[in-house]
Design a protein around this nucleic acid. Structure first.
Length: 889
RNA sequence: GGGCGGGUAGCUCAGCGGGAGAGCAUCGGCCUUACAAGCCGAGGGUCACAGGUUCAAAUCCUGUUCCGCCUACCA
């Protein structure tokens, strides 16, 4: 031991690598699947196999690791279940892009070869994020790592699908869905991002058959007119009532269109007449059901006009729009064009504009599931934190629509349904059926579609634990304790896990859901590659160390607000790590050989600073535990920062240099033991937030053992909270600060030691100062401390700077050293401040409404405030008078 | 259109019924033997605006306004 053991600045790289290796090697992340009754479990939000660690992951997993490490230290049987998501569309896109570089499309390989190729990619370069999570310090039970496409989870997926089908909650139907022409698949409503975009509203004249009249319709998508099969007006609309039932002629195409009336049409939008295109608009599709309209599909799955598009066939949708407008104009059907803001739907993966298209898809009837999930949050079986999100959850769950679960891609769980080629029977089965159960024919073809990725994610909390088998793990850890996630996937994932967990897991999937913020750049912008404002967590960890980064995230994670992250902020907390490091560098050499701990007799004999720091420590323990349990990570971080830096380092360590270097062996011994205890507890308190540096330091504390990650976590000891000691220490701090202030304001160099005269107002104050003279002398750099009896009226030097602490008066004789004008100015400034407090308190105390209605505590507070201000004002005012008198002479 | 969140020190944000706070930035002084990534001090805010409730409002209520997000089938 010695200073050579710890370098002057904290160098995280080696320490992080060594400790993580050590933890893993010793199997410290492993959970026991034997139920002990004190379980704590979290399932990780599985990152995409394609993913690389970004800020969202970093925040999400840091918070989970804090929770996990805390509960593990508290002695809970703790499971953090890790794994990855196969991310259907995203992963397929990655591999398709690689193929494209070789000039290939997935069709060139064929389904089987393509999927093989994806698996190959997954084995080689998928899941780099796992190592990045390790770098972050995540203490997941890696031996249990799962993948949404592994054998067990695939089985769970089939089981759930089949059971849903048996329960009549899965159906296949023709419906108009969101179609991505680029990804070539249907998307669920959630997978469409809405965005406002500048467009136009075109007014087109549709002549009425056998009449001079015409209906003018308004549309933002003129190209869809090729598929129009009706014109609709509001039944209440006087202007058009006489036309309902008649026929309009579709320009260019010359199709005959029924004129129908339906309340969905808004009278005062556009012209009040709506062109109806059942195959390419959701509303119109529903109109076609109500009015039994013909459907004409004019677009193919690539977004190009098909053979129904007369001479426009073969054109791209936007190309066609321009051509149609041109032709309408030429043939005088175009009545006008207005600029208009249109809501565009885009694919959440590739950002291409989605196209409403009719196709045969699989759906989950979610209403019954949603009702159960709704009830579980309403009655508190699952608690959403912060609770403002519960409202959003209710809202969505209440208005939920059926979930389109089929995707026309190859990478994913293939739908376990087969069609009999002979009799057309649809068979849904857990295992590949050998023959048709109806006609016994062996020729069965499986569905080519795969399931929405979120279908398997919805099962994650129980599928990862072995469901549908009734495993020990499931019995021990399901329902999980907590789910930590961002609000962006509240509907995608959380809501669906609730539904599936309740229906198939037999209980809610988690007791609590903590919804955290989004990480943005320092100006509040979303981080994105194209904007170039992305902060890479890996770069940050290289630059500042993992602990500094984790602490920053925790410190900024206030509930219900987005996080604006800047490098400056991380740098600040890097400095904090360094502060901790140096505090340890100072303390550790004093602890050599100190393997014992404080005896009850020692505790009885502790000096004021020792009682004070133990009191502050215990308050901090309480604050940190409360913060973690209430998901107020920022408050926990703040309490730790303040205690460590501004109490332990600034005051305790500074004053401890006196007894540690003093002659009194007994006092020095007790000081060392307190120092050890505080350092030890502090490392443990900090450990869930900053695991690496705390392990490194703790490992050098005598008797601290092999690791602190297994606990114990410090226990709050109310008997060590000592308000009296806190008050006395505050008085000493006040004296020291006052002297320092005088020195700074009077422009006196720190090297110049100053004489100080103290006039206590009570015997207690006298005793306090008397017995702690050395602390004042050293920390305030005092040359000579003169302490008078309470109430004494000593003859003071004519020229001195003054201060008041509590009711105690301080003087720093400065005759000949400073300009009296400077001191007068300083005193007047101080007095002005006090005067504000004084009059405020006075006003309240003389207000009879306040005195009669306010609660006694508030009144007492005002009285105390008034008295304190009065004492300070009196003392300083007195000094000011003397100074002015001195000036006159 | 509906919903939610927010406007507090130059910046980023805590506080959310009884003394306006932190970090960073700024200014002044210090290489005080753990730490200059540090130490000691200082300055800086009609808490968006307008009403209301209350003895008391940054904090609760109402309205206005400006930002952000979510959601939605006015083409």
């Amino acid at each position: 031991m010695g200073e050579d053991l710890l370098p002057k600045t904290y160098e995280p790289a080696d320490i992080e690598r060594q400790w993580y290796g050590h933890w893993e090697e010793k199997g410290l992340f492993r959970a026991s699947d034997k139920r002990k009754g004190n379980e704590y479990s979290i399932v990780i939000p599985p990152p995409n196999v394609t993913g690389s660690l970004h800020m969202g992951h970093a925040l999400n997993n840091t918070l989970q690791d804090i929770l996990i490490r805390y509960h593990r230290m508290k002695g809970a049987n703790t499971l953090w279940m890790p794994g990855m998501d196969h991310a259907g569309i995203a992963t397929q896109n990655v591999v398709e892009k690689q193929l494209a570089e070789q000039g290939l499309r997935r069709e060139d390989l064929g389904r089987e070869k393509f999927i093989e190729r994806v698996w190959e990619w997954k084995e080689e370069s998928g899941g780099t994020i796992i190592n990045q999570l390790k770098r972050l310090g995540c203490s997941c039970d890696w031996d249990r790592e799962r993948f949404t496409m592994d054998e067990g989870l695939s089985q769970a997926v089939r089981e759930v699908f089949v059971q849903l089908h048996e329960q009549g909650l899965v159906y296949k139907d023709d419906y108009i869905v969101n179609w991505c022409p680029r990804c070539h698949t249907a998307l669920s409503d959630l997978e469409v991002e809405h965005e406002d975009s500048k467009g136009h509203l075109w007014l087109i004249r549709y002549p009425v058959e056998d009449s001079d009249e015409a209906l003018v319709v308004a549309t933002t998508r003129p190209e869809t007119m090729l598929g129009d099969t009706a014109v609709a007006v509001n039944p209440e609309d006087e202007r058009y009532r006489h036309l309902v039932g008649k026929t309009a002629i579709l320009p260019l195409v010359n199709r005959r269109l029924r004129i129908i009336a339906d309340p969905i049409v808004t009278k005062d939008f556009g012209t009040g007449a709506l062109k109806v295109t059942p195959s390419h608009d959701l509303n119109d599709f529903e109109l076609s059901i109500r009015h039994n309209l013909e459907r004409v599909t004019i677009m193919d799955t690539n977004g190009r006009i098909n053979e129904n598009g007369i001479h426009f066939a073969g054109m791209d949708r936007y190309e066609c729009r321009a051509a149609i407008v041109k032709e309408l104009k030429k043939k005088k059907f175009l009545e006008g064009t207005d600029p208009y803001v249109v809501g565009l739907g885009r694919c959440y993966r590739c950002k291409d504009v989605v196209e409403p298209l009719i196709s045969k898809q699989w759906f989950v009837r979610v209403k019954p599931l949603a009702d159960e999930a709704l009830a579980a949050v309403r009655d508190g079986r699952t608690k959403i934190i912060p609770d403002q999100w519960a409202k959003t959850y209710y809202e969505w769950m209440t208005n939920i629509r059926d979930w389109c679960i089929s995707r026309q891609i190859w990478w994913g769980h293939r739908i376990p349904a087969w069609t009999c080629e002979k009799c057309g029977e649809l068979v849904v089965s857990r295992k590949t059926p050998k023959k048709c159960p109806s006609c016994k024919d062996p020729a069965l073809t499986q569905e080519t579609d795969v399931l929405d990725t979120w279908f398997s994610s919805a099962l994650w909390p129980f599928s990862t634990m072995g469901w549908p088998k009734e495993t020990q793990l499931l019995k021990t850890f399901y329902p999980t304790s907590c789910l930590v996630t961002g609000f962006d996937i509240l509907f995608f994932w959380v809501a669906r896990m609730m539904m599936m967990g309740l229906r198939f897991g037999g209980d809610v999937p988690f007791r609590e859901v903590y919804i955290h913020a989004l990480v943005r750049d320092e100006h509040g912008k979303k981080m994105s590659k194209s904007v170039g404002n992305v902060i890479d967590p890996l770069v940050v960890m290289d630059q500042f160390g993992t602990d500094a980064f984790r602490f920053t995230l925790a410190a900024l994670a206030a509930q219900g607000r987005d996080i604006r992250l800047s490098a400056k902020r991380i740098e600040g907390y890097r400095n904090f790590m360094n502060k901790i490091w140096n505090a340890a560098r100072f303390a550790l050499p004093h602890l050599v050989g100190q393997s014992g701990s404080l005896s009850p007799e020692d505790l009885d004999r502790l000096g004021l600073p020792e009682r004070w720091i133990l009191s502050r420590l215990n308050r901090t323990i309480e604050a940190v535990e409360q913060a973690i349990l209430g998901y107020d990570f920022n408050e926990g971080a703040q309490a730790l920062y303040r205690f460590t830096w501004h109490e332990f380092c600034d005051w305790y360590l500074e004053q401890a240099k006196i007894p540690l270097g003093g002659d009194d062996a007994e006092t020095a011994r007790r000081t060392r033991l307190v120092l050890k205890q505080v350092l030890d507890s502090l490392m443990r308190l900090l450990h869930p937030f900053i695991p690496f540096i705390t392990e490194e330091i703790a490992s050098k504390i005598p008797g601290c053992g092999d690791t602190i990650m297994k606990g114990p976590f410090p226990v709050h000891d109310a008997s060590q909270v000592d308000p009296k000691a806190e008050q006395d220490m505050d008085t000493l701090i006040g004296i020291i600060t006052s002297v320092r202030n005088i020195r700074a304001e009077m422009d006196l160099p720190p090297s110049k030691k100053l004489p100080v005269v103290v006039l206590p107002s009570t015997p207690h104050e006298h005793e306090l100062v008397d017995s702690h003279q050395e602390i004042i002398v050293v920390l305030a750099r005092v040359s000579e401390l003169s302490l008078f009896d309470p109430g004494a009226k000593p003859k003071l030097p004519r020229m001195s700077a003054a201060a008041v602490v509590g009711e105690m008066r301080l003087f720093v004789p400065l005759e000949g050293v400073i300009d009296p004008e400077a001191e007068i100015a300083r005193l007047e400034k101080e007095l002005a401040k006090i005067d504000k407090d004084l009059t405020a308190a006075q006003k309240k105390l003389s207000d009879e409404h306040f005195m009669s209605k306010a609660n006694p505590e508030a009144i007492q507070k005002q009285k105390d405030k008034f008295e304190e201000a009065q004492a300070r004002s009196g003392g300083l005012g007195d000094s000011l008078k003397r100074m002015k008198k001195f000036r006159q002479n």
